[in-house]
C-alpha cells in the first residue's frame, strides 16, 4: 500500500491537523518509508493468536457510582484559552 499526497491530506484531515500541499508532498515519502518498514509484520502467522489487551493481567476495578471530585468549575476552566459565564467558548457552530 503506497501513500500518496491525497491520502496524506485525508489522514491529516481525520487527525484535524492543517497541512499545506508542500507538507503533504514532504510527508508522503516519509510515511511510505515508515509504513513500508512496519508492513513486515504481515509475514508473522497470527492466525491462532489473540491480540494483547492488557500487558500485565489486571482486572479493571469497579467503584461506587458517586461524585469523587466535583464542584471544581473554576479550576476546570482555569486553563481554557477562552471561557465565558462558566463555559468553554468556541466559534459559533449553529447558524
Amino acid at each position: 500500500m503506497s501513500v500518496d499526497t491525497a491520502t496524506v491530506k485525508k489522514v491529516a484531515s481525520l487527525a484535524r491537523i492543517a497541512i499545506s500541499d508542500a507538507d503533504a508532498e514532504r510527508l508522503a515519502p516519509e510515511l511510505n518509508n515508515i509504513l513500508g518498514w512496519i508492513e513486515q509484520l504481515g509475514e508473522v502467522d497470527t492466525s491462532s493468536v489473540e491480540p494483547m489487551t492488557a500487558v500485565i493481567p489486571n482486572k479493571l476495578r469497579l467503584r461506587e457510582d458517586v461524585v469523587t471530585e466535583g464542584n471544581q468549575r473554576d479550576a476546570v476552566l482555569q486553563n481554557a484559552p477562552q471561557g465565558e459565564h462558566g463555559f468553554f467558548t468556541v466559534p459559533k457552530v449553529v447558524e
Binding site: 512496519i38 509484520l41 504481515g42 508473522v44 497470527t46 493468536v49 489473540e50 491480540p51 494483547m52 489487551t53
Partner: peptide, 11 residues
C-alpha cells in the same frame, strides 16, 4: 495494522 500489531505483541 493495529490488530496484527496487537497480536504480534502477544507473541
Amino acid at each position: 495494522y493495529f490488530t496484527q500489531a496487537s497480536k504480534v505483541r502477544t507473541l
